[in-house]
Simulated scan of single mutants.
Amino acid sequence: MLCLAEYGMRSLNKCRTEYEIVLPFSHGPELEAAIEDLLAEMHATADLCHCWIEASLHDPVAGTAWS
């Protein structure tokens, strides 16, 4: 969750399995690079803790998803 704190992370359910974050890019190459970096950081952090994660990001406005 450390990587998400800088994006105004907000839990969307009691189980804490879904979160809302806000990235400072609306679309384009900057957004794609930020998402790629964020997912890589999340996976690397989990790996350092000898864990794994399942992560997907969804833009409800554009209907785009990344995993």
Rank of each mutant, 00 (worst) to 15 (best):
S26V: 10
A55M: 03
P60I: 04
E54G: 09
H58T: 06
N13R: 12
S26C: 11
P24E: 04
I21K: 00
S67A: 10
N13T: 14
H58D: 07
A55K: 00
G63E: 10
L2Q: 14
R16T: 14
L48F: 02
I53A: 01
E32G: 03
E32N: 00
E18H: 09
N13G: 12
A65E: 09
E41F: 11
T45H: 15
M42G: 06
M9N: 12
E54T: 10
Y19A: 04
L2H: 15
A40D: 14
D47G: 05
L39W: 03
I35M: 01
Y19P: 02
E41L: 11
L4A: 01
L57D: 04
E18I: 08
H27D: 08
G63R: 08
C15A: 15
A34T: 11
L12V: 08
L4I: 02
L39R: 05
C15D: 15
T17M: 10
E30P: 00
L48N: 06
D59H: 03
A5D: 13
M9L: 12
G63I: 05
D37I: 04
A40R: 13
G28T: 01
C49T: 05
H27W: 06
R16I: 13
H50C: 07
H43N: 05
M1S: 11
A62T: 13
H58N: 08
A5K: 15
A46I: 05
M1R: 11
T45V: 12
E18S: 10
H43E: 05
E54W: 08
H50D: 09
I35Y: 01
G28W: 00
L23V: 14
G28C: 01
T17N: 14
L39G: 04
A46K: 04
F25S: 09
V22N: 14
A33F: 03
I35V: 01
A34W: 07
G63Y: 07
G28Y: 01
P60N: 07
E18A: 09
H43F: 01
E36F: 02
L23G: 15
C49M: 06
P29K: 12
R10D: 02
N13A: 12
E30W: 00
E18T: 10
L48D: 06
D47S: 07
S67W: 07
T64K: 13
W52G: 13
M9I: 10
E54I: 08
L12H: 09
R10Y: 03
R10P: 00
S26E: 11
L23A: 15
Y7L: 01
G28K: 00
M1G: 10
M1T: 10
D59Y: 00
A40I: 13
H58F: 04
E18C: 09
C49H: 06
L57V: 04
L23D: 14
A34K: 08
I53L: 00
V22R: 15
S26D: 13
W52Y: 14
L39A: 07
S56L: 02
V22P: 05
N13K: 12
A62K: 14
T64M: 15
I21W: 02
M42L: 10
L48E: 07
G63V: 06
H27M: 05
Y19G: 04
R10L: 02
C51S: 07
F25W: 10
G8Q: 03
E36I: 03
C3Y: 11
S11V: 03
P24N: 04
L4E: 00
M1P: 10
T64A: 15
S26Q: 13
V61F: 11
P29Q: 12
C51A: 07
H43L: 03
L31R: 02
N13I: 11
I53K: 02
C3K: 12
L48A: 06
G63P: 03
